[in-house]
Design a protein around this nucleic acid. Sequence first.
DNA 1: GGCAGTCAGTGACTATTATCACGCTGCTTT
DNA 2: AAAGCAGCGTGATAATAGTCACTGACTGCC
Lengths: 215, 215
Amino acid sequence: MENPNKEAIHKQFPQFEQPLLDTISQESVVKHLEAGDSVIETGQYIRSNILLLKGLLKVYREDDDGNEFLMYYLEPGNACALSIMCTARSETSQVKAKAVQPSDVVLIPQQLSEQWLAKYKTWHHFVIASYRDRFEELLQTLDSIVFKSLDERLLFYLKRHVQVSGPEIKLSHQQIADDLNSSREVISRLLKKLEQTGALTLHRNYIEVHDLEKV
Amino acid sequence: MENPNKEAIHKQFPQFEQPLLDTISQESVVKHLEAGDSVIETGQYIRSNILLLKGLLKVYREDDDGNEFLMYYLEPGNACALSIMCTARSETSQVKAKAVQPSDVVLIPQQLSEQWLAKYKTWHHFVIASYRDRFEELLQTLDSIVFKSLDERLLFYLKRHVQVSGPEIKLSHQQIADDLNSSREVISRLLKKLEQTGALTLHRNYIEVHDLEKV
DNA sequence: GGCAGTCAGTGACTATTATCACGCTGCTTT
DNA sequence: AAAGCAGCGTGATAATAGTCACTGACTGCC
């Protein structure tokens, strides 16, 4: 009885050694998420690592007033050590993850992950690389917030979004404002300025990006 | 010929297994830093991990205009995967580390670190835990920048500083402004407000903290 | 077609932070 | 003691971003 997702896992994570692939297929759970679904809420495992097979996740921080901001996106082949999320809840804030597109994720219980660290070399390289990559992405987000003004942050945001899901940005101004922890009116005004430069065209509920580099 | 720092290493990193301690003593270099010394510049090894034996380091981000902001402090027993620093130089910014107090650091070449990951269980746990801890601290910094206004960020900054080096904060207003990527005048005004609440007393070149919690 | 609801545009106002310009203080140097 | 300088206080002003109030425009539904 082969796990039907085995091939998908192998394709997205070709670096894993064969026995590890077998173990993953046997012991972990693949979960399908619709756009908008929250990863934490659906996860049966409280502390799990997540491998993304298909789709797109956004990982964001939320404080207790409901304010949020985008940390980074996860693409297929990426992982997010959910252990980070579960431990990293200070009194006030929490890390959350949500599907942006319909997605397939592999949930790996924290305990298994730790066993594999010792057992499978490719796994431990993968985990360390994941931490490092996530760290660097977070650092980039931080940079843009600290050093840049909102119009530059918006540009950075749009570029990143185009990278992960193409030049048709299907978001309302309100959603963008949320991701940047700003307000709709401000984002609207900045977007309009960008439209006037010819970098993009605004539509209802989506933005057509032409060229963000020349701005 | 015993490495005289072996005992210090053992004391700060008691979780390390004996063979690992031996290897560290033999193969790594302990470097003394005076307050203000930059870690990168003194490091003979380009890509190294750093273990802090004594003192206090600050790790900060700097963009190409010379603006900077504090990411977090490192205390004895902490480590900073310097590999992060070396790879994490985007076009614009760079991670740097500087001694705040006279400090002793152990420099571990990246190559050795990677060998040890497979060889010593306590090392690989340590590295993973370090990544996680640094990640969470960075997340806290990010929180304070995104969700809080400057007066709250200043409070957060002062609290953290008190935690790592006591209630006598030996910094000029300018230095604090740099760490928060703000300007001296603004910090001066906010500090004055805090003084009026009785939370601290201002002096030339240092601040005497009484109680930051009640503010 | 009419109604409700979401999305977007806009002007006026406010709050926060940055910047500029200056003066004062107290320490160090000569 | 005089000069020089770093650190700090302060008012005025500017720039940026957030908030409020309102409008119109499009969408889906009955």
